[in-house]
Structures are given as structure tokens and as C-alpha cells.
Design a protein around this nucleic acid. Structure first.
Lengths: 340, 340
DNA sequence: AAAGTCTTCCAAAGCGCTTTGGCTTTCATG
DNA sequence: CATGAAAGCCAAAGCGCTTTGGAAGACTTT
């Protein structure tokens, strides 16, 4: 059932039927009702391919997925996706993932924009002066950045959490508890979130005349194994830290294992605070010693990004407003006063 | 730059240019070269929207993503996606995720098929007599099932791993080591993979005249917390098992925690084998006691599914061939002879 | 009553591609 | 030298929708 057939059986022109269906004003309400009715009864659904060709609108949002045999997709992605999908579903938006060589995403961005394959895109895990952000900005496609980039001479819309504030609070708490030697087990420090977190820790330490030693900060891909290694390295050095701030729950698993392997205890020998993006399958309160966390649901962020993308597509949102969500500090058993 | 312009500057018809570009035989090789050349030089890329309208082909594969505020996407998904994306990238295929109400995916399947939004779809985490499989089968869109459904009067193409064989081997090993009371901590037993795994364990036990007690099998969503709870329940009952087969590495984290909480040790008091889908961020050899596993890369499965989908789209693959991959049993420190 | 203004509808022109059906030209064949 | 086939090319008809530029009729206004 296509427009032609439908309009024929209504003895109306395609124009009128199209307009009736798309809510244009210049059609009699009575007629509109008839059209709507017939459309529903015959299960008419406009052919999206035809519509896109005519309008350029696709009803899809895009994401360029960095891939490669040695490239792993972050498990956070799936949680973000849950939220995004949740919103997208209720608005009949589809998400198209365009896999790209992790080292050459530009080609893919250009392609999906040139081809009008999606109405908007989002960018995640941005780095300072991220080329993708600059690119989509000049390409002129609506977009939202999940996280933040920095160092541009233009503004852009983003949704981020207050990583600096979160880690500032976490570090401040640890300092208040008497810790003097803090360490930071961070994610890849080429990404902005990691930079912000480090900044937060440093700022809290500086406020008490302390510093974050070179050898007390590790920046690694967030795996359990890296959490373990980093912790071993930290705790086996001469001025071992008495408290660790950790960028991920998964790494925290490794931290806990390392501490145990060394015959130490949490929080007796080491206090630990990790960032929790809220996974349904791994909860900080269920760690052998309940883990203190800075918490922010990445899933909610996904829903929010989808919402903003939809708003930008339909012209309801404009400008370059960046929003920064506060992060909760949840104190549990893994922190205590500094030993000794 | 569109076809019209390109053909105009080549003083050729759109027909010829189109055919030259698409590799049709009825065009002079010399001409084809000229066309190809000009196309490349001017960066001509056929407009996909127009092409889809004309051909019906989209260059996209689809996945209906079950969503809902209380629906969590499985973290395995991201690994599968890595593999899928990896293959898709090298073949210029995009993946469109269509979020659907988890309780009504049919509408969405019908929509994407009716609208010709994708060339093929895949289905994951199938259940016995899964309605989605029956649906796409009747809808006539090319598809591959990742995993298996059962109980149909038709065959369908799938790629699955030998879950039954894997858990059969695992259980057999445990029995050989003298264990008489095995338990199974399984995933959601409405899904085929869980049923197959249970079957594998039962078969191995039966071969030695043993059985899997009702109270020795747990079917739960695969979270750390559920792994913990199941283990507590199992080990605190009168005829506690001396060995556990576990369906996921994430649950195994909970198993280990519960064992520790109870003051027991692995493998002294309890032997443990878990299934490993191979996550880059959590490795069985890094468990406090290296974990024995049945291993199969879900990422490779993703790549394979993409490959088969591409083959079906282009007509290279037909029929309903199901393929079942063997699973490796990797023995590490977490298994030992039965205590006592 | 003439002139303007809405209201409501339509024919037809795209959107950019593929494909059908045919038309030349060339060339081997009898 | 006529003939048939093969090679190489093209005009035009879709694909199914939106949108432009009217046009007819009803209704006010002067």
C-alpha cells in the first residue's frame, strides 16, 4: 500500500493525502480525518526510502563505531546504549552504527554526512581538541558530545558529568581522613574525562598543601588486569599510597585483588574510592568490602543524549549549551582514616 | 556531485555511467576506465537514499534491540558487536539498531521488513520456539540466528557454540576428579544456551550414575550479585556441592566472593569452572585462583555472523545451514579433586 | 456587483539512482 | 554483399514520497 494507491481509493490527490498525514494546515479537518482513518485501516506506512530521498530526513541518529582487531569497545557503551535506546524507542528513532577504522574515523563521518545517512550524530569519549568534534561542527550536522572536548575556538553542545568535581570530592574526603599519600588509577589520560579527574584530585590535594606524585598516577585502559598491575606497582614502591582513587569499577576489581595478594586489607591498609557508572551486573555495595564510589548513571546520560539529539533534529534545541551533571559521592566501607 | 552531473561532464548517459560504476558487462572497458577515473577524481559517491529507492538494497544490517526501563542490555553484546563491527567495516556495512519494547518486538520486526530498512537481520539470545525466529522466517528477510532456537518445523541458519558439549566436558572433568555433588549456576533458563548447558551437565552426571539435584541448579540473570546469592544458597544447604559449573565470568566473580565470605577456599573446598566469552576487561587467568573455563570468543561469533549475513545478502549463502562451534576447556587452578 | 481573501485541493516537478527496452555500429558468417 | 549477432550506448520510465505553484470555489469586503 503506497501513497498513490491510498490517494486513489480516497479519490484525493497524493498531495492532499500526504499533507493530511503530515499535519499540514491547509487541509480540511474532515478530510484529514477520512485520510487518517483510511491510512490506519489499510496499515499505510510511508516508505522511508522515498521519504528520505524527498526530504533528506532519515529518522536515524548515527554513531561512528571505532573498530579494529585490536580495538575493544568499552563495556560502558552497552549501558549508554540502554539509555539511548530507551529514549529512541519511544520516539521511533533508530540508531545506526557505522563501524570505522579507529585510526580513520573522519572518512566515515564525511560519508554519513555527505550521504545524509542520519539526521544527527553523537560523539563519545572525546579527547581535548578532538578532531571528530571539530569535524562534525564544520560539517554542520546536528550533534551532541557525550563528555567534553577542550581547546576549540567555538562552542558546541555536550552532556557531561562533573568528573573534576567528583574526584575533587573523593580526594578531599580522603585527605580529611588523614591520608597524605594519594594515588590515582585513571583511565586513558588522552581522554578528557581522565584529565578532569586528575585535575580534581590535584586540586583537592593542593588545597591541603599536598601533591600527586608522578609515580602515584597511572593511566591505563580500564581493565581488571590493569587495575591489578597499577595497584601492585603503587603499593610495592617505597612511598606507597594509603588511599587510591580509581576511575572504574572494573579496575577496582583488580585493585582489590592486588591488595589481597599483598596481604593487605581495605580499608585498614588502603582506602579506596572508585567511579561507578552504574552497571546492573556489578555493584559497588557488593564488593567484599563495600566500595565507596562517585556515582553517575551512564545510562541516564544515554537517554539524555538521545533526547537532546531528537530536540536538535526537530529544531527544538539550538545553540551550543553544554550541560554538566553533578556526581554523587557515596561513602561505604572501603574508606577509613589513614593507617599509622 | 551526482550521476547527472558526472555523466554530463563525461558526455555519456546516466545509464552508461551507472553501469560502468556497478560493473555491468555491457560497457567498453576503455569507457569504464574513463568513468571510474572521473568518478574518483570528483569524489562521486552514489546517493544511498536514491539507490535504496531504486533497488531496495540498503547496505545495512539490522538488529532489534529490546529495551525498557527495566531491561538491561547484556554486556556480552558489546563484545559481539566488536566482532560484527570489525567485519562490517571492511565491507561497508552499517548496523542499524532498532530499539523495541522488549515485550513487543514483533511490531518492530514487521516495520523494518515492510519498510525495507535493512537487507538482513540477526537475532541473538534465542529461546526455544522463539517467536522472532518464526517471524523473520515467514517475513522472508535474510537472517542469521546467533545461538539456537528449537522446536520448529522448519530449518533456519544459525551460528552457535556447542554449549552442551562444553558443559558436558566441564562436568565430566569434575566427576573424574571425584566430585559427586555438582551444582550449576546458569543463566536465564528460558534461553536455549542455558538449557543446553544444563543438558550437558546432566548427561555427564548420568554417565556416572549421578544426577543434578533440583536444589543444585540456579537459573538467574548473569550478574555478580546473582552469582553470589546462588553460591551462598548452594553452599549453605545440607548437601552442598563440591563443584560448581557457572555460566558466566561475571557470575563467577560472585561465586568467588561468596566462597571467601564463607571462609572456604577454591579449589580446596570447591572446584569451579565457568564459561568465558572472552572479555578484554576480565580474564579468568587473573582470578585470585586462576579460573578454569570453557572458552569461546563471542567476538569471533560476531564477526562470523556479520560474514554470513553479508553472504546471504549477496546471494552467496543460501539454505538453512546451522553451524556449531566447538568450545575449549581450559583447565586452571580452580579445579581439584573432591575434598574429603 | 466587482474585487479581494481564504480555504481546500490538485497536477506535476523534483529527489538521484537503476533498469527496461531499443537503437546504432561493428564484425564475423554464409 | 546481405545477414545476424554482439558490443556499446542511450532515452525514458520508474522507485514513492514531498513540495511548488497554481486553481476553483466560498466567503468577505467595498
Amino acid at each position: 500500500m503506497n501513497l498513490k494507491q491510498l490517494s486513489h481509493m480516497l479519490s484525493l490527490s497524493q498531495t492532499t493525502v500526504s499533507r493530511a498525514l503530515n499535519g499540514y494546515p491547509e487541509v480540511n479537518e474532515e478530510t484529514r480525518r477520512r485520510v487518517m482513518d483510511a491510512a490506519k485501516r489499510h496499515g499505510y506506512r510511508p516508505n522511508p526510502s522515498a521519504r528520505r530521498l524527498a526530504t533528506g530526513k532519515t529518522g536515524m541518529i548515527g554513531y561512528v563505531l571505532p573498530t579494529g582487531t585490536s580495538v575493544d569497545i568499552d563495556p560502558h557503551f552497552v549501558e549508554f546504549l540502554s539509555g539511548l535506546g530507551d529514549y529512541a524507542r519511544s520516539h521511533e528513532l533508530d540508531l545506526v552504527l557505522s563501524p570505522a577504522d579507529a585510526d580513520d574515523q573522519e572518512t566515515t563521518y564525511r560519508r554519513i554526512v555527505a550521504n545524509r545517512q542520519v539526521d544527527a550524530v553523537y560523539i563519545s569519549s572525546p579527547r581535548p581538541a578532538d578532531r571528530r568534534v571539530a569535524l562534525v561542527n564544520t560539517l554542520g550536522i546536528p550533534f551532541i558530545v557525550h563528555g567534553r572536548s577542550e581547546g576549540f575556538d567555538f562552542d558546541y553542545p555536550f552532556t557531561d558529568i562533573d568528573n573534576e568535581g567528583a574526584f575533587h570530592e573523593a580526594a578531599r574526603l580522603l585527605v580529611q581522613l588523614g591520608h597524605r599519600r594519594l594515588a590515582l588509577i585513571n583511565g586513558d589520560d588522552r581522554e578528557t574525562f581522565a584529565i578532569h579527574r586528575e585535575r580534581g584530585v590535584r586540586r583537592a590535594l593542593a588545597a591541603s598543601g599536598l601533591t600527586l606524585g608522578e609515580r602515584h598516577v597511572c593511566s591505563l585502559v580500564m581493565t581488571e588486569e590493569n587495575g591489578y598491575r597499577a595497584t601492585r606497582r603503587l603499593l610495592e614502591q617505597s612511598d606507597a599510597p594509603t588511599a587510591i582513587a580509581c576511575s572504574s569499577l572494573i579496575m577496582a576489581l583488580g585493585v582489590v585483588r592486588a591488595v589481597r595478594d599483598l596481604g593487605l586489607t581495605i580499608p585498614g591498609d588502603l582506602s579506596l574510592i572508585a567511579h561507578d557508572d552504574v552497571f546492573p551486573w556489578l555493584k559497588p555495595e557488593n564488593f567484599s568490602v563495600p566500595l565507596s564510589t562517585t556515582r553517575s548513571s551512564i545510562r541516564l546520560a544515554g537517554a539524555r543524549v538521545a533526547e537532546r539529539l531528537a530536540a536538535r533534529i526537530s529544531g527544538l534545541e539550538e545553540g551550543a549549551r553544554g550541560e554538566v551533571w553533578p556526581v554523587d559521592l557515596v561513602v561505604r566501607g572501603s574508606v577509613a582514616g589513614a593507617p599509622g
